[in-house]
Design a protein around this nucleic acid. Structure first.
Length: 588
DNA sequence: GCCGTTTTCGGCCCGACTGTTTTCAGTCG
């Protein structure tokens, strides 16, 4: 087809734009190297902030129209805007290269060791000539840190342990963290004088992975938290044990921070430890601008606490409506709250159905009637059965003949159902050249075609993008499933231009899927915002391979909320009639 | 390096805990 080859040609000739992540990484390195150089901490902070802003921007920097528009991004001034442009044009940064000649690159890694910050790392370099991990290991073995001010025996021992320890996973899937956090919360709730325990931190903000657990304990009167934690079977060690704060390490290596506050401070502490850090900074600045002080004990005018018992109290006192924890990432939520423009975030109960599920006909574990029963138990009103097409990656994939028989089976099943509809679908493989693994003749008989990549993840960005664009040009494709292909902690997202995919999805039209499997959760929050900005509806799908996995939809909703999505932005939060009409528009 | 209800220079969020000190710097969240 002429249109297909035009897309392929564009993909092949257009040079891949520098991803935002590359700019963010350069700014992070600048910040680290400046810190080790002993630079002004506010200048360092500006680079760190810029890295974070760029990383979570729902739009490619390469799409901005020059320095003037880049300068409009809050936190990006004229200097950083020019540096972004330099990176986009030359893929390098002169100031970073100069810095690298002064600060050995290996020193950066030392910042990750416990007890080592920029000041001690600089001391190691200037006094002992240490340039990296190996030098430090040798210096420790030779006892050369002894004579360095600020390096006592305890710190040396911690460093030795850290250097010899096997690298534990840095982050945990939210769903894994839940299995540790919730029992610990319940244990702490059972302690005498404890009135309230909440899991805070990135867990409460619903991040797809969690680095450690933060719990806020509210108690009337004194509480021997350290003893309580030592008495908890999962706790391996306490790394800090003060009267109001304890840090524990669980048997699996997970770090847990627990803070104790009085009831008057419960809301302030929960707000403080829910974070994110950047959101907290903004809130404290807001308090300061009003002549107030905000900390984990409350909101204060002078010495008088004017709010603190609940989060809403604090928000109200600062002139703000409720800000959902999922939004507290300093991505404009405070300004939006101030203007009364926060989105009415989608909730799990808004979901009307599920548009991606498997049965034992392909790689699912339960037959269709059981899947349908599970969906009805979840109060859903419809479910698409989307078994795999036959291809190399998945055994038992359906060919056209078996899919035709499944279509008949669904028709028969629907005859027996009241107040519930089973939609006929398939999860069709996008082949390396962008063709689909099933012919149009059978796909035309389906209600919904979910297209996905399951192989050749490492194509260059231009080729991967045109592969997907070509698939989206096919007449029957309704939804692009798990559009980045990532598996958290296992497989990075494949390289692809979402600017182009979203533009194509908008024009066609078709939809993108937010896959609720705990290790996928792609789209991520940033991509959700980008889809919303492009006016592309999102399907929050279970990709369930058993009835029990329909519960994973809750995780998809968490991610959607982090991406600022409302019910109206989500395809399957609409009534079946509307979903069918929208799916019909995907037919070319 | 950014930014402006402190407004174009001079500020920039706040506190706990540890280890190494002998009054507090550094790290961490």
């Amino acid at each position: 087809m002429a249109a297909e080859s035009a897309v392929a040609a564009r993909g092949a000739t257009r040079p891949a734009a520098l991803p935002n992540e590359a700019v963010a990484a350069a700014f992070d390195e600048m910040a680290d190297l400046l810190a080790i150089s002993g630079e002004n901490r506010f200048r360092i902070g500006a680079y760190r902030r810029a890295a974070r802003i760029v990383r979570t921007l729902p739009r490619a920097l390469s799409e901005f129209a020059g320095i003037e528009e880049l300068d409009q991004i809050p936190g990006i001034g004229p200097d950083l805007a020019a540096k972004i442009q330099e990176l986009l044009r030359t893929r390098t940064l002169r100031s970073l290269q100069q810095l690298r000649t002064k600060v050995p690159a290996g020193l950066r890694a030392l910042l990750g060791l416990p007890g080592l910050g920029p000041i001690r790392v600089r001391a190691l370099h200037s006094a002992l000539g240490i340039k990296g991990m190996d030098d430090l290991r040798r210096a420790l073995a030779a006892d050369r840190l002894q004579r360095l001010r600020g390096f006592g025996p305890v710190l040396q021992q911690r460093l030795e342990q850290a250097l010899s320890a096997a690298a534990a996973p840095q982050r945990w899937l939210w769903s894994v963290a839940a299995q540790y956090a919730e029992p610990l919360r319940d244990y702490l709730r059972s302690l005498p004088r404890v009135t309230q325990v909440e899991i805070a931190g990135s867990y409460r903000r619903g991040r797809d992975t969690v680095g450690d657990l933060d719990l806020v304990v509210c108690a009337r009167g004194p509480l021997d938290l350290a003893s309580a934690l030592r008495g908890y079977a999962e706790v391996r060690d306490l790394s800090a044990a003060g009267p109001t704060r304890c840090s524990a390490v669980l048997a699996n290596g997970m770090q847990v921070d627990v803070r104790v506050v009085a009831p008057d401070s419960a809301g302030a502490a929960l707000y403080y430890f829910t974070g994110s850090r950047e959101h907290g900074v903004r809130m404290r600045q807001r308090a300061q601008a009003r002549g107030l002080k905000l900390n984990e004990y409350g909101l204060f005018r002078g010495r008088r606490r004017i709010a603190g018992a609940s989060e809403q109290q604090i928000l109200t006192a600062l002139g703000l409506p409720w800000i959902a924890p999922e939004l507290r990432e300093d991505r404009g939520e405070i300004d939006a709250a101030q203007r009364g423009e926060l989105p009415q975030l989608i909730e799990l109960r808004d979901l009307q159905g599920d548009l991606h599920a498997h049965t034992s006909a392909s790689d699912g574990r339960e037959p269709m009637p059981k899947m349908v029963a599970a969906a009805r138990a979840q109060k859903l009103r419809f479910m698409a059965i989307t078994d795999h097409s036959r291809h190399l990656g998945v055994v038992h994939g359906l060919d056209a003949g078996r899919l035709a028989r499944q279509i008949d089976e669904i028709d028969a099943l629907n005859e027996t159902l009241e107040d519930f509809a089973v939609l006929k679908g398939a999860e069709v493989d996008i082949l390396p050249d962008g063709r689909l693994a099933l012919p149009d003749s059978i796909l035309r008989r389906l209600d919904v075609v979910v297209a996905a990549i399951h192989s050749h993840f490492d194509l260059p960005q231009a080729q991967q993008t045109s592969r997907i664009l070509r698939a989206l040009e096919r007449p029957c494709v309704s939804i692009l499933a798990h559009p980045t292909g990532r598996l958290l902690g296992e497989r990075a997202p494949y390289a692809v231009s979402f600017e182009r995919i979203l533009a194509a999805a908008r024009a066609r039209p078709c939809f993108l899927e937010l896959n609720s499997q705990p290790a996928r959760l792609d789209m991520d929050d940033v991509l959700c915002q980008a889809a919303h900005a492009h006016g592309v509806l999102v399907s929050v799908a279970s990709d369930a391979h058993s009835g029990a996995e329909l519960a994973d939809l809750a995780g998809g909703i968490r991610q959607a909320r982090r991406g600022w999505l409302c019910a109206k932005d989500v395809l399957n939060a609409r009534p079946l009639r509307e979903v069918k009409a929208l799916l019909a528009t995907t037919r070319l």
